[in-house]
């Protein structure tokens, strides 16, 4: 008997993709605002408070400078306002993707739909190594400080070094995957089917329609 595991990773990714395309072409400020509101509510529900702060601050400078640039060149502030909220809406959707989509489930679903396991598991290793890479950046800055030199976050030296360090980890990771039996091109058993939830897809479609009916 095959056990199956339901995931909404694909549905949510698709919804975000469609919404991103829509707001790229739509001129509705209301739609953008509704998406920002929904995204903020989602982040609150997932208790992703850091992401909320990022949502508030990260787009501020690009959004404000676009607004300023357009009002400077024309008299019509509606278009400037549209681009302002659109920048925020893009960031909001991006953060929902980061917080809400289980990349592991998405990649495993893709593997079961014929994406190469080498690609899937290689990418998973990289995704799971990201926190360590961030830690390495801190370690390099500390090492430099111990030698009496301050490396600033924008110093290219840090990033060149981090790339080399990460590359030196590659052999270790490959060895570790082999040690856990991974063999390129070999048959792998599929004990549980990863099924993209139908209900989730319906809910995503319904949300999309509702947004378009109610907000526009």
């Amino acid at each position: 008997m095959m056990v199956s595991k339901k995931t909404n990773a694909l549905n949510l990714s698709l919804l975000i993709l469609v919404l991103t395309l829509e707001i790229s072409f739509s001129h509705s400020v209301k739609l953008d605002l509704a998406l920002i509101g929904l995204a903020a509510a989602f982040l609150l529900w997932r208790r992703a408070f850091k992401s909320l702060v990022v949502l508030a601050l990260l787009p501020l400078i690009p959004a404000a400078s676009t607004y300023w640039a357009i009002t400077l060149h024309g008299t019509d502030t509606t278009y400037a306002l549209l681009l302002f909220v659109r920048t925020y809406a893009f960031t909001a959707l991006g953060l929902v993707f980061l917080v809400g989509v289980d990349l592991e489930a998405l990649l495993l679903w893709l593997e079961q739909h014929k994406l190469s396991p080498n690609f899937v598991y290689g990418l998973l290793v990289v995704i799971h190594a990201l926190p360590q890479i961030i830690h390495e950046v801190a370690a390099i800055r500390e090492a430099s400080l111990l030698r009496g030199q301050k490396l600033h976050p924008w110093s290219p030296m840090i990033y060149v070094k981090v790339i080399f360090v990460a590359m030196s980890w590659q052999d270790q990771y490959v060895k570790a995957m082999y040690a856990h039996g991974y063999t390129e091109g070999a048959a792998r058993s599929v004990p549980r089917a990863i099924v993209s939830s139908r209900c989730g897809l319906m809910a995503a479609a319904a949300l999309f329609l509702l947004l378009n009916v109610l907000v526009r």
């Binding site: 799971h128 990771y173 549980r192």
Partner: peptide, 28 residues
């Protein structure tokens, strides 16, 4: 291995256990 940080492919131990045994092509 010596470095505890660099020996897992998956996010959780359950995921890693599944990964390893799938690699061995074991039935469910």
């Amino acid at each position: 291995f010596q470095n505890p940080d660099q020996q897992f492919t998956m996010r959780t131990l359950r995921g890693e256990l599944n990964f390893a045994l799938e690699n061995l092509n074991l039935p469910a």
